[in-house]
Structure formats: structure tokens, C-alpha cells
């Protein structure tokens, strides 16, 4: 069997890409198995150390924060709830609004769509003060609702769903109508199953988006009970040494590794749907 040069080249590029992705993760993991002193003295570690159990135990069980009440596990749960809420609601709301835009031929559907689309130019960071004002007036600071609600509208997902629905032939709707499906049934029985790979993709993107939110939870929460992973990364595992706050680097690495697990799980779980959708061409 002759191997082509272009194939070898492609593989080299791919392998380089993989290394680029994997090496930082490995570095973090390897470093998380040493103690802080080693890391501070010698920098990040390539080889495995002997502190794995101790560091991870510490991270999972130690209470941190100003009041020493919040644990890393609690922050993982908070982030998970926030990301799950954002992703689920974003997908549902976008799919439904795209459905309205495409199938209910009301006046000004196109201008309304562009109005939604323009909000892409106004991310949360730009409107963070008015958003905070609204949420706090509603009394939703320090609550999961407050964490999730201002982030549930999504122009991107609405756009993708709209484009997808537009590719579905009109005959399908007409045929479903003659078969006695009302608009709700058509959405549930046709659009949702037909766009399930799309839903999975959107869910992954939006989950990761929600999981990595930093600024909004930082402003929103005063109670440590609602702290999220990304916030915690900066705050916990600090040690006071002669009046100077020093980071406990080894534990932080362990924390980083742990914090990667939920989004990775979501991707791994939903990937099945992805691949399924790729293999069965259903159109």
C-alpha cells in the first residue's frame, strides 16, 4: 500500500493540532499531582507527582471563600445548574421564536427577525448595568433565576433554527395539515425530531457559554452560596503569607481539571446524537 505525501502531511498537521490541544491539559493535570512548593520552584510539571489524592481531596472538601463556607463541589453544582438552565431555555426559546418567524406569516416578520439579530451586537457585557438594575428590582439577585434569566434569549440560535426551518419543504407542512396536525403538533412531531442534531449542537454551544460565564455571576451574587466555578478559580485556594495572599497553585490546578469535567461530559454524551445525525441523512 502506497501512502501519499499529502496524507502524511495531513496527519502531521492533525497531530500537531491534537498536541496543541492536549499538552496544556496534560500540563495542568501533571502539575495538579505535585505540591505547590515544587510548582513555585520549578514551574509547571510534565511528569506525575505523588500528591494526587491529597490535592483532589483538599479541593473537593475544603471550604473556601471569605466566610469559609463555600466548597468547590457546591460551585460545580451552581455552574452546572446555571449552564443547564441557560442552554435548555435558550434552545427552547430560540426554536419556538424561529418557528413563529418562519411559519406564522405575520406582518413585519422579517424586520422582527433582524431586530432579534441586531441584539448580537449588544452582548451582556454592554448592557450589564441595565440588566443588573432590572434583575435587582425584581429581587432576583442571589438566585438561580437571576443567574439564568438575563441570558436566555439567543439571536445566534434563533438564526440557526430559522435557517434550518426554511430548508424544510412546504409540502411537509401541507401534508401534516391534511393529516390533522395543528401548529403545535407540527412543531413537536416534525420540527423538533427533524432538528434534533441541531438542538444537540446548540445545546452544547450554549452549555459551554453558560458554564464559562464570569462577569454576570460576579456582579449578580453577593452570597457565596451562588458562586460559580469560573469565579471561584480566582478566589478560593489562596493562602495568606506574611500579609500577602499567595495562590495555592497545586490545588488550583486540580480545581481546573475538575472544572473541565461537566462540559466534557455534556459533549461526550451529546456526541452520540451528533454522529447519529451525520450517519442517517434524513432528507
Amino acid at each position: 500500500m502506497k501512502i501519499k505525501f499529502s496524507q502524511i502531511l495531513a496527519h502531521i498537521v492533525l497531530i500537531l493540532g491534537v498536541l496543541l490541544m492536549v499538552i496544556p491539559i496534560w500540563l495542568s493535570f501533571a502539575s495538579s499531582t505535585h505540591d505547590t512548593v515544587t510548582i513555585l520552584k520549578e514551574g509547571m510539571q510534565f511528569g506525575l507527582g505523588d500528591q494526587l489524592t491529597r490535592n483532589y481531596n483538599e479541593v473537593l472538601n475544603e471550604k473556601g471563600g471569605w466566610s469559609e463556607e463555600v466548597t468547590a463541589a457546591k460551585m460545580f453544582i451552581n455552574s452546572f445548574i446555571m449552564a443547564l438552565g441557560i442552554a435548555t431555555l435558550k434552545v427552547i426559546i430560540s426554536a419556538m421564536s424561529a418557528y413563529a418567524l418562519v411559519y406564522f406569516r405575520f406582518k413585519f416578520a422579517v424586520p422582527i427577525f433582524w431586530l432579534i439579530f441586531i441584539t448580537l451586537l449588544v452582548p451582556l457585557e454592554v448592557r450589564i448595568f441595565p440588566s443588573y438594575k432590572i434583575v435587582s428590582d425584581l429581587g432576583l439577585t442571589n438566585s438561580y433565576t437571576g443567574l439564568v434569566l438575563p441570558l436566555v434569549a439567543s439571536a445566534t440560535a434563533t438564526f440557526f433554527f430559522r435557517q434550518f426551518y426554511k430548508t424544510i419543504p412546504d409540502e411537509l407542512l401541507e401534508s401534516a395539515k391534511l393529516d390533522g396536525a395543528n401548529s403545535w403538533r407540527f412543531f413537536i412531531d416534525f420540527l423538533v425530531p427533524l432538528s434534533k442534531t441541531m438542538i444537540a449542537a446548540m445545546f452544547i454551544f450554549m452549555f459551554v457559554y453558560g458554564y464559562s460565564q464570569y462577569l454576570w455571576p460576579l456582579i449578580m451574587t453577593t452570597s457565596e452560596e451562588y458562586w460559580t466555578v469560573v469565579m471561584g478559580m480566582k478566589i478560593i485556594f489562596t493562602e495568606s503569607y506574611e500579609g500577602v495572599a499567595l495562590p495555592r497553585t497545586a490545588e488550583r490546578f486540580a480545581y481546573i481539571i475538575l472544572s473541565m469535567i461537566p462540559p466534557v461530559l455534556v459533549v461526550v454524551f451529546l456526541q452520540k446524537w451528533f454522529i447519529k445525525g451525520l450517519i442517517q441523512t434524513e432528507k
Binding site: 409540502e171 411537509l172 401541507e174 401534508s175 391534511l178 390533522g180 427533524l194
Partner: peptide, 20 residues
């Protein structure tokens, strides 16, 4: 009368089978 209440059935040019 709504198409679903007319009790008519239609065969389309591209069949419009439900792909899923």
C-alpha cells in the same frame, strides 16, 4: 373548513413523506 377537517387526502409530487 380547515384542511384537516375536510377529510381529503393528497399525494404530493415529491411525496412529502415524513423523513423521521
Amino acid at each position: 373548513v380547515d384542511p384537516s377537517d375536510r377529510d381529503v387526502a393528497m399525494v404530493f409530487q415529491n411525496y412529502a413523506l415524513y423523513p423521521h
